[in-house]
Design a protein around this nucleic acid. Sequence first.
DNA 1: AATTTCATGTAACCAGTTACATGATTCA
DNA 2: TGAATCATGTAACTGGTTACATGAAATT
Lengths: 195, 195
Amino acid sequence: MTREAHISTLSLAVLGLISQRPCSGYDLRKVFSTTPMGHFSSSPGAIYPALQRLEKAGLVVGTVENKKTLRPRQVYSLTDEGKRELKDRLSRPVTRDDVIWRVDDLLLRFAFMDGVLGRDATVSFLKDFLSNIETYVVSLQEHLNAAREHLPPTGRFAMENGIEQYEMQARWARRVLGEIQGIQGNQRNSKEEES
Amino acid sequence: MTREAHISTLSLAVLGLISQRPCSGYDLRKVFSTTPMGHFSSSPGAIYPALQRLEKAGLVVGTVENKKTLRPRQVYSLTDEGKRELKDRLSRPVTRDDVIWRVDDLLLRFAFMDGVLGRDATVSFLKDFLSNIETYVVSLQEHLNAAREHLPPTGRFAMENGIEQYEMQARWARRVLGEIQGIQGNQRNSKEEES
DNA sequence: AATTTCATGTAACCAGTTACATGATTCA
DNA sequence: TGAATCATGTAACTGGTTACATGAAATT
């Protein structure tokens, strides 16, 4: 029955935060409004409905604190199914479409991997991420080369911006991969720079 | 009456493309589906309604080719008001909120500046862009420093990713600024690197 | 006493997604 | 003749935005 819950990026952020510690809607709003996490939306009109959807889907449960007062504080925590779903979502393979359309989502998934996935899964996520990025950069460069002449200058600069974004992502992934493997991996010297 | 048309990013892309040459809906779809511009959506369900909205707002007009056939080809071009609106939108000041929430939009605006705005406006757009980015990077770094200890490793890496994205944007802006001013600016040596 | 902050939500609106529908024209 | 491609659209759904509403507790 509860197959295939469609979890938006915002809901994933909510799920991830709750996985770190139980949160009320207000707690979540604070996180979103005071940290760069707020990049994924913000306001009550998004967060409370998201919480309701997650609860309806059985991924979180709200337990009421301050039962007496009129406006009780609802604190949400993950259900077992919620944990499963989160794990599931975080360990999904990285697709080409993900790097094209949903880099944010990928970064969010990565941000929550500690405590949900092991180091091996994190490393292979990064490797997949990196290789998909590298492939995509190549195709972007080809596209730019093909289009270069027909493009107005600012159009070309804008395309270069896009390419540089992905190149930056690749550098980041290489660096992080190095750090994660270097720190507590099977220690051989990091000798995998340059293909 | 026609004050304040709310133009989504997709609509802006459509407007920008039409400003370069008149397009049918199908033409637009081709551009979106074969170039990285497709980053801003895609499919008929988005583009045709967008065109209708723009037409209703008086920013574009569709003229029918192939009048005889049942499925005539509608080719849209900018009205004077559309040109004004585009110019207006492209020359809006760059705000802090723009760099936080709407970098895509800013890049899109930049991509269409040739042929709509002059070099001076483009340059000052870039300068504004750059200074807003620089300010924001600082605040992100401060936030990271404050949060560093409480953050799980992957969370920290993800935040660094965000910072690096903005640093990349800053480098891009500096480079492009240099190229634009260097090529046909009042030629003094580019001596404004390093503050 | 007034303001701010804690805390939770709803309702109208809007734009984008997916999936479907239609039919002409061109090409194999 | 059948497939691909040209070409235009609609409808149901979904989720996020803005703006509003409510009221208790804490601070000034």
